[in-house]
């Protein structure tokens, strides 16, 4: 949806809830990128999550072998 109000609401939701975050000890194995259904993760030495695309499904968190992806406020 390209409606400004929809974008606004999405951002509000993101700002009010927990978000996926990557710790600095991420090794860059890219499992998260490979399993992300939204193609929201890019990995070049370490993972970066595109907050706009992320749907908070937590799949990346479950697949991370070093527990580097966590939910933060």
């Amino acid at each position: 949806m390209d409606l400004p109000i929809a974008n606004f609401l999405t951002q509000q939701r993101r700002h009010n809830t927990e978000m996926m975050a990557v710790a600095n000890y991420c090794v860059g194995c890219a499992f998260c990128m490979l399993v992300c259904p939204e193609e929201a993760i890019n990995v070049l030495g370490n993972a970066e999550i595109d907050r706009e695309k992320c749907s908070d499904c937590k799949r990346c968190m479950r697949y991370c072998p070093v527990e580097a992806i966590r939910l933060v406020e």
């Binding site: 000890y25 090794v27 860059g28 194995c29 890219a30 070049l44 030495g45 072998p65 070093v66």
Partner: peptide
Amino acid sequence: AIQSYSNGWP
């Protein structure tokens, strides 16, 4: 895909 391995997942 570019995958790196070190430390706890080497």
